[in-house]
């Protein structure tokens, strides 16, 4: 018992998340929520599936009140959302966090040949949270194509046509929602409340 107490303290006081990771996470959660809700407001002006007669998103999930308001929010929050991802990308490159903080060969190995259940959960957790990076980049890439289709006509061509581009841009909404569910559950399972607190609340100042 005597030996357990100090180690527990050291585990508790150890910082699980670097402050830049927490800042990125917070800004991403808030700006992505604004992007999703204002994006659905724009979607409702002419639903991707079915046009004006198509199914509309319920008011509760929308932000902006009307089409112009949704566009204001969307094209204001896009700066915060994309610049946040940009500095974070530079940060993980410079600090080489991308080498050991994201999914790697060791996670695949743990899933294929490992016997440790906790390690396997952790591998899944890393696979899932790594997957949000390409999803966010896809949302920005398709978004630029829809925002400036004349200047970035090659983005529209890359996806085939306008409808395909709209579908892919819209598909990032269910992808992000699915991600958010899987990521929350796996974070809870892999690190419990301690991990959640370390990303959201601990040592915020």
């Amino acid at each position: 018992m005597d030996s357990a107490a100090p180690s527990q303290i050291s585990v508790k006081s150890r910082r699980l998340q670097a402050p830049p990771a927490k800042i990125f996470h917070w800004v991403n959660v808030v700006s992505l929520t604004i992007m999703l809700m204002s994006g659905l407001q724009i979607y409702n002006a002419n639903p991707v599936f079915g046009g004006r007669e198509g199914w509309h998103i319920p008011q509760f999930f929308l932000l902006g009140g009307w089409l112009a308001g949704g566009r204001h929010w969307h094209f204001a929050a896009m700066w915060i959302f994309s610049l946040n991802l940009l500095w974070y990308g530079i940060y993980i490159l410079i600090t080489k966090r991308w080498q050991h903080r994201f999914v790697g060969g060791n996670d695949v190995k743990a899933l294929q040949t490992g016997k440790n259940y906790k390690r396997k959960i952790y591998a899944w957790h890393r696979i899932v949270y790594t997957s949000i990076i390409p999803i966010l980049l896809l949302a920005i890439f398709t978004g630029i194509g829809m925002y400036k289709p004349a200047q970035f006509h090659w983005i529209v061509d890359f996806f085939g046509d306008w409808f395909a581009l709209r579908v892919v841009h819209f598909a990032t909404v269910p992808l992000v929602l699915l991600f958010a569910i899987a990521h929350s559950l796996l974070a809870l399972k892999a690190g419990g409340e301690r991990l959640i607190n370390s990303m959201f609340w601990n040592n915020m100042l």
């Binding site: 932000l63 902006g64 009140g65 112009a68 308001g69 566009r71 204001h72 929010w73 094209f75 204001a76 929050a77 700066w79 400036k148 200047q151």
Partner: peptide, 29 residues
């Protein structure tokens, strides 16, 4: 909340529209 979000909506637009317009003018060839 409804009223303030409507106010913030036009503020959000006014705050970034000059920046967005600069970007658009820059992109226009």
């Amino acid at each position: 909340t409804g009223v303030s979000l409507t106010l913030v909506e036009s503020l959000a637009g006014k705050a970034t529209e000059p920046l967005n317009q600069k970007l658009e003018e820059l992109l226009l060839k």
